[in-house]
Amino acid sequence: MTMFGPVLDVRPLFGQERRELLALLRSLSAEDWSRETVCPGWDVHDVVGHVLNDYVRRISGSRDGFGGAVFANDETLPRYLARVNDEFVRAARQFSPELMIELLAHLGPELDRLWEGFDLTGPAALDVSWAGPGPSPAWLDIAREYTEFWVHQQQIRDAVGRPGADGPELVRPVLDTFLRGLPHALGEVVRPHGTEVRVVVTGPPGGTWCAVSDAGRWRMAEPGGELAATVTVRPDDLWRLATRGITVTEARRRADAQGDPALIHAVTSLLAVVA
């Protein structure tokens, strides 16, 4: 087991999440497709275009070994990603909603087959930067993609006022994935061996996640150490904080935090860097 905790296999969920998305998109009016979302400058059509870009990018890169767009001179990774995502979304404004739905329905099963071919404990095709520097396991990379698709679906649902795809079986893996970033969140806070931090998520999709200090670093663990801090949050607040849907200040106001202030600050700060 690595610092990220036990393997989380979300592959069986992609088809269900996509069925919910496609049913939603097929029900939207022309007006709905033009509604603004929480993503700055993007309406519903743009967010769907971004999801389509994710499908195309992962199939092209992981299945076909195609490198795609190259970095510009002195371009950082965040700026590169922002640029190429924006370029695709702008181009996709030429696509009809019907065509994008057809493409998602066609490419989705191909992406599912791609995930099935991965060794979950092998190296990731794309490392998960918010979970820490260095190599990530494949299962975390795949889980990160699941959170990406699910969160964008929720952003569309928020924009058009259609809640859904929010059962515990779909939501809990999202929360679980984001919380695998706890060790990295706590990395700058040095505490004695065995010091434990817990995040408790309320409601049906919730549970308790724990990180423990071990030989100068933090790792995911089962509860049972010397508890130093506990942060209790609602599921909706957690995923919105993790994707910048609410501010750190607002998340801290809504949370119930007890214990070591430095540990609490670290936990509630890092969750907001997930893109």
Rank of each mutant, 00 (worst) to 15 (best):
M1R: 14
F4W: 14
P6K: 14
D9K: 00
D9F: 02
V10A: 03
R11H: 00
P12L: 03
F14D: 01
E17F: 01
R19T: 09
R19G: 07
L21K: 02
L22H: 04
L24P: 01
R26I: 07
R26A: 12
S27H: 08
S27G: 14
L28A: 00
S29P: 01
D32G: 02
E36L: 11
E36P: 04
T37W: 04
V38D: 11
G41A: 12
W42L: 06
D43L: 07
V44S: 08
V44Q: 09
H45R: 15
H45E: 12
V47L: 09
V48I: 13
G49T: 04
H50Y: 04
N53A: 14
Y55V: 00
Y55F: 11
S60M: 11
S62G: 10
D64W: 13
D64F: 14
F66L: 15
G68H: 13
V70M: 15
A72I: 07
A72Q: 15
N73A: 15
E75S: 09
T76S: 15
P78C: 10
Y80K: 10
L81D: 13
V84K: 05
V84G: 02
N85C: 07
D86Q: 13
R90M: 10
R90T: 14
A92T: 04
F95I: 06
F95Q: 10
P97F: 10
E98R: 12
E98K: 10
M100K: 10
I101N: 01
E102W: 04
L103I: 03
L103D: 05
A105D: 15
L107A: 06
P109S: 10
D112M: 07
D112T: 07
R113A: 15
F118D: 02
F118E: 02
F118V: 02
G122M: 08
P123M: 06
L126Y: 11
V128A: 00
P133Q: 05
S136P: 04
S136M: 03
P137I: 00
L140V: 01
L140R: 02
R144V: 05
E145W: 00
E145L: 02
Y146L: 03
Y146W: 05
T147R: 06
T147P: 02
F149T: 09
Q153D: 15
R157P: 05
V160K: 10
G161M: 12
R162W: 10
G164E: 11
A165H: 07
D166P: 03
D166Q: 11
P168Y: 11
L170F: 01
L175Y: 08
L175T: 07
T177D: 03
L179A: 08
L179M: 13
A185I: 02
L186T: 04
G187Y: 07
R191G: 07
P192Y: 08
G194C: 09
T195W: 05
V197S: 09
V199R: 01
V200L: 06
V200F: 01
V201M: 00
T202I: 09
G203H: 09
T208I: 11
D214W: 13
G216A: 05
W218R: 02
P223K: 04
A229C: 12
A229K: 04
V231F: 11
V233I: 15
R240M: 12
L241E: 01
A242T: 02
T243C: 11
V248A: 12
E250H: 13
R253W: 12
A255S: 11
D256P: 01
D256R: 12
A257V: 02
P261Y: 10
P261E: 08
A262S: 13
I264S: 06
I264R: 09
H265A: 15
V267L: 09
V267C: 08
L270R: 13
